[in-house]
Amino acid sequence: MSRRLRMWILAVGALGFAALFCAACPRLPAFGGDSHPYGERAVRAALAHRTANVVAAVNFDQRAFDTLGEESILFASVLGTVVLLRQTREEREVPPAPARVPLPVRRYALLLLPVALVVGLYVVAHGQLSPGGGFQGGVVVATALHLLYIGADYRALERVRPVGVYEIGDAAGEGAYLVLGLAGLVAGSSFLANTVIGYGTFNTLASGGIVPLLNMTVGMEVACAVVVLLARFLDQAVEIEEESGR
């Protein structure tokens, strides 16, 4: 398989793709036009289940199975990082040196941490009403926790953030998503079907049936996954050093 041959195969494949792509493009509705076949159906299905944020309805109601796939991808990638960045035999763990941080930054970080946490939880809770949702809120919550590393040093962060708990939270979030899906089966309809819980009144916190619950599980899973991911990166960058003996 010489390089030239690989280039030829790439060229043939690219040409084939280009031909099909150009054939498909003229049949797409014009950009910015008023005919949106998929959009109308998605909005109708979302309003039927009284979910104000149609994107959340698509994510967690109409195509909840795809979101399960995406969530498992995040879970697997964090698992892979934990395996790859583990401390090998010839590496030793050095306790992190206390960093010298200007006082205003420390006060700002300590004040901003709870505010960012509440903003993240707000974004998770209102996923089916306003822009946001489990993933965005989860990332904000995880970043809020790491304000301690920025405001103080890694020692302070480690004292507050037991990694084991977040690994369990990561797995529990993924498991809760599955259990909510099975609830649809137990209730007699299909997996991840939005028929189990009532749809509540439109544009309130309890609207959308299963959507807010799935949002919360995704929020918990993403927040814990990002904390575990950052924990591994921080360990490698700050604490773990190779044996200097060799």
Binding site: P131, Q136, A142, V226, L230, F233
Partner: peptide
């Protein structure tokens, strides 16, 4: 597309630089 913009902001402003 505010949801996508929010995801980009949440990840891109503090998490990606840190990693």
């Amino acid at each position: 597309a505010p949801d996508v913009a929010l995801s980009q902001l949440a990840v891109g402003s503090a998490l990606t630089p840190l990693l």
